Amino acid sequence: MSEIKGRDIPPALQNPGQWRTMLFHGDDAGLIAERARAAATQVAEGTDPFRFITLSVEEHARLPEESAAMTLGGGRRAILVRDAGDALLPHLKAALAQPTDTLIVLEAGALSTRSTLRNWARKPTDVASIGCYPETGRDLERTIQTVLTQASHGAPPRLSSAALKWLAEHLAANRALVRSEVEKLSLLGSPGQTLSLDDVRAAIGDSAEGSVEQALLHGFAGDPQQADRLLDRALHEGAPAAKVTWALYRLIERLLEAAQLMEGLPAPGQTPGRGCTPMEALKQIKPPVFFKQQPLYAKALSRWPHKALLGLHKHAHDLELATRQSPLEADLACRHFLAVLAQHKGRR
């Protein structure tokens, strides 16, 4: 097997013909679907039904038959197999035992290290395995820029640095949802026009309502029902536990910065300040808090003093360890943490 990672993935998707089978697996369902379809249509040179077919989970038993089918007019066939899992393996082996050059593309989900399909794929030399996991940080920023350019047919509006950073922090961890939201931005401005942070927030602000950060904010503000509802939505949309812990660390830092200003606590090497109100503090932190989120931030700050926020770092670290050590129970750990966060007694 060739385990294809990082920078080697785009070239592999442009030239998938060297493989007999390609396995796409991981936590980002949107990215899996996008890459699997790209590989299959590249070999089939489009979606001609004589050269490109899709098999649903109910049709897996047809894989050997479809793999052996001939094309009309020549060319290589590609079969995109949806919902591939361990139960597919007997049908896959039967298909590969036939003398055919059909490319079989497997669209799987999160396969554990004990998965028989994943372990089988490690042996043949003509099988490629590509992990598809949610992007964050610079990787996600590059994807946003690429999608915006594609949606604008090569002449996109520009994103300010603050707008790009905000998008990378707030978009759901699912390539399909990222693409859907970024494509909206291609309609906002003319080629070369710079879209500000306010422009972007106004365009996709509603999407941020279901973000992990929004769920955490409601937890900090003491609203367990809304926090759980929003976290459930974010997890359903594909946000992994790693994104929850990453967003938690970032939100703690944002609240700490505001709490420090509120309480007049000095930064290293500086004299104490005079203190200020929550709303005054929120206007000073960078990047500025979106006006729709300011009431939630203010309520959170009214419940969490600087000292209590500092103490949350250890609990956030414990949550991160728990989600890594028990991936199957990661969502439950995040829900429990959020419930405890929302039940905090408040400022003392």
Rank of each mutant, 00 (worst) to 15 (best):
I4N: 03
R7P: 14
D8L: 06
I9C: 00
P10Y: 05
A12H: 06
Q18E: 12
W19R: 03
G30Y: 04
L31G: 08
L31H: 09
E45A: 15
D48F: 06
E58C: 05
H60F: 11
E65W: 00
G73F: 09
G73W: 02
A78N: 03
I79F: 00
V81M: 12
A87N: 07
L88R: 03
K93L: 10
L96E: 15
Q98S: 09
T100F: 06
L103E: 03
L103K: 09
I104Y: 00
A108E: 00
G109F: 05
L117C: 10
K123G: 10
K123T: 12
S129P: 10
S129K: 11
C132Q: 03
T136Y: 05
R138A: 15
T143R: 14
S152G: 02
S152Y: 02
H153V: 00
G154K: 03
W166E: 14
A168E: 08
A172G: 13
L177N: 05
V178C: 12
V178G: 10
E181C: 05
S186G: 04
Q193L: 08
Q193I: 09
S196H: 08
D198M: 09
R201I: 14
A202M: 01
I204H: 06
H218C: 02
H218K: 09
G222D: 03
Q225E: 13
D228V: 04
H236N: 14
H236Q: 15
A241M: 00
K243E: 13
L248D: 06
Y249L: 01
L256F: 01
A259Y: 07
Q260G: 04
L261W: 02
P266I: 04
P268R: 12
C276L: 03
C276G: 04
Q284N: 07
K286D: 05
K286P: 00
F290H: 15
F291D: 00
K292S: 10
P305Y: 03
H315L: 06
L321I: 12
R324T: 07
P327K: 08
E329W: 09
E329S: 14
D331Q: 14
H336Y: 11
V340I: 06
H344N: 11
